[in-house]
Design a protein around this nucleic acid. Structure first.
Lengths: 208, 208
DNA sequence: ATCAAACCGTACTGTTCAGTTTGATATGTC
DNA sequence: GACATATCAAACTGAACAGTACGGTTTGAT
């Protein structure tokens, strides 16, 4: 049972994929094992060959989704120019737009819904999630700001506060409305609107 | 059945109260009607005399909680002084601390969890909730900023962006971590930390 | 005291659903 | 072809749970 052959790896992936779809759409309680089996194109029996229980299956699915989240964040981590104020402005705007694009993507909010709903059931996953999305983006912004400060481009005494201000301000374009928007995907704001909040933020940190 | 006597009003309130406790703690799916009846100190039968179904009971409970949310926001709406920069600083700090106090209060996050989890089931409630917490605080801050601008204390061309920046920045002290913090209440940040973000924000909007 | 309405506790019904069993069918290996 | 392994479909089991039925008890008004 559940050998490590190419065949079983394929079946496992198939189940994993179907379960991901159903869990994201219906949540843990709403997802029936029958629906998962059907979505995966697999008999319910086979499902229990590869996973001990529905709960373990969901934990596995959530783990993968969190890993993907980390990869999505890693993509943002290219070294970005912050050597001058126009460069920093461009960099912050690009970053904000990319983050909003990720957050507005359908899976991101669906995952958040599922994790929040099941936080009482699997608190470790909840903590891991919060830490992922927190340290992911915030850390990146903090690093940018520190580099810009070291270049003498900006003047901030409290990088942490500045980071919070920026990230929080940007995310209000999606949250909290997006998290309860079930029908249809959420629209990310236009680059123009993002630029306006970036400019405002820049006034707070430029050398006076 | 279910007359409008003092007695039945009391029983209804009793059921409502017990159901509120259980729904906030367990969510819709997790709350059994037996548990609700027990928490309310009422027989399950009586529960169904006053409410047609578990779903209707939850809708009623959520409605009340949203009303309370509105009242909580209304408390913040006292006219606050913004006639000078120190006054505005004090006002924004006070307001931010009060908002954080409300959000960190146990019921606020529990309600958010329940509503987010059940957004697919009752989307109207979800929309109502998002609108409530959005327009509640943001509107208030926007009005403060406009008044301060009219007094010539600050210089903002885009009040909406400034409002988003401020409210979003402040809320990062609770979210997203608080929403998945099941064990124990969430700690609001110290006034000092709030002051630091207020000062940063003020730099963005003061006349240069 | 009497009566009716409200209420209680318990047990029941019907349904949903996770997980299992069964017995048949496909797949690949020798 | 024979044999083992993986998979399938479908029926089954047991538990949880929303909602109901019922017989007994409290409450309050007259």
């Amino acid at each position: 049972m559940s050998q490590d052959s190419a065949r079983s790896r394929a079946k496992r992936a198939q189940i994993h994929q179907g379960a991901t779809r159903v869990f994201l759409a219906e949540g843990f309680a709403g997802a029936t094992t029958d629906a998962i089996a059907k979505a995966a194109g697999v008999s319910k029996q086979t499902l229990y060959v590869y996973y001990r229980s529905k709960e373990q299956l969901m934990v596995d699915v959530l783990d993968s989704l969190l890993s993907r989240l980390n990869r999505d964040h890693a993509v943002l981590e290219s070294d970005r120019p912050v050597g001058s104020l126009p460069e920093l402005r461009q960099t912050l705007t690009d970053l904000a737009c990319e983050v909003l694009e990720i957050v507005a993507g359908s899976d991101y909010l669906a995952l958040a819904r599922v994790i929040i709903a099941d936080a009482p059931r699997v608190p470790e996953i909840g903590r891991l999630w919060a830490q992922t999305i927190t340290s992911g983006v915030r850390h990146l912004v903090a690093e940018l700001l520190e580099r810009a400060r070291d270049c003498g481009v900006i003047d901030v005494e409290d990088v942490e506060a500045a980071t919070r201000l920026f990230v929080g301000g940007v995310l209000t374009y999606i949250l909290p409305d997006g998290i309860v928007a079930v029908d249809g995907p959420v629209a990310a704001p236009s680059r123009e609107r993002v630029e306006r909040i970036v400019d405002l933020f820049l006034r707070a940190i430029t050398i006076s």
